[in-house]
Design a protein around this nucleic acid. Structure first.
Lengths: 151, 151
DNA sequence: GCGAGTTGCTTGCTATCGCAAGTAACGCCC
DNA sequence: GGGCGTTACTTGCGATAGCAAGCAACTCGC
């Protein structure tokens, strides 16, 4: 239970600080940064909306609005898929890449300063391992909520 | 960096599942549960709004509205402080205690099932230690954001 | 090819939350 | 004891997120 509260509070504390710094430095919210970052890692700087939503830990509707916003700011554009007219790609623009490049060092430094440097490598490994595993298990079994009723 | 993304994704995944179960079982959001729970642990089942906000990882304004809601539902009441007319106590009602008692076992079980049981004791210790420490450091130094500009 | 079911994205509605401003009350200094 | 700064809570506003419904486009069976 201590570990549970620590997760809640620790996450909130770190996210709050990092988001504030990212906002102050580059006018980007954390999810927005995540979106740009994932796009820049993707082949051709483009990702399907639904894949991007999964990466950025957002629901499809949340991503739609975030891409709306980033698109208004000229950081991404939507592109149609020639093979399947239902799918929309979000594509990083030059401006988007520039913004990400500008934000990247500061953000990295923030993460180091407020997170990585304060923990031991063992702790970081444990967190990556434990929460990474949790994420995979929970998201994969998410559709099957019926085990809640079984016993 | 892997540890950072794991924190983001793992937290989101666990919180989503637990909040959904809590909501389904007892019609309580996670912050609402936290509030009731902290109140029940407090002497006299009452806590100052500001202290409660700190416990529940909410801003004062967020807590005001949450207590508004819980108060409408009859789970807590506000009480004035005779010594200082500025402070407001949130006090757990009998109905609030009953709701908490009803929610408690299920929630505990959810936490065990989706979190504790999936991690090793070492991992839980590491998380409690690491994130608990982070929380304390970050919240204590939060007012001094000027070190961002230094160096 | 045509209809039924599915998938991928968007939109309407609503809830939550934080920041900044507002209000009330306290404490201290003169 | 009157005024000034501080503290505690609340409120106005805007931003964000999710759910459920909508809509367009695909797939598969016939």
């Amino acid at each position: 239970m201590a570990a549970w509260h620590a997760l809640l509070r620790g996450h909130a504390a770190v996210v709050r600080v990092l988001e504030a710094e990212l906002e102050a430095q580059q006018r980007l919210s954390l999810p927005a940064y995540e979106v740009l970052s994932h796009l820049s890692d993707a082949p051709d700087n483009r990702l399907r909306m639904s894949d991007l939503a999964e990466c950025a830990v957002l629901t499809p509707s949340g991503l739609t609005r975030l891409v709306d916003k980033l698109s208004r700011d000229g950081l991404v554009v939507r592109a149609k898929c020639s093979a399947d007219a239902r799918v929309v790609y979000a594509v990083l623009t030059d401006a988007g890449r520039a913004r990400l490049v500008a934000a990247y060092p500061d953000h990295l430094r923030s993460v180091r300063r407020h997170y990585v440097d304060r923990l031991t490598p063992d702790q970081l490994d444990a967190i990556a391992d434990a929460l990474g595993g949790l994420d995979r298990k929970l998201t994969s079994e998410c559709p099957s909520a019926e085990d809640s009723i079984a016993s």
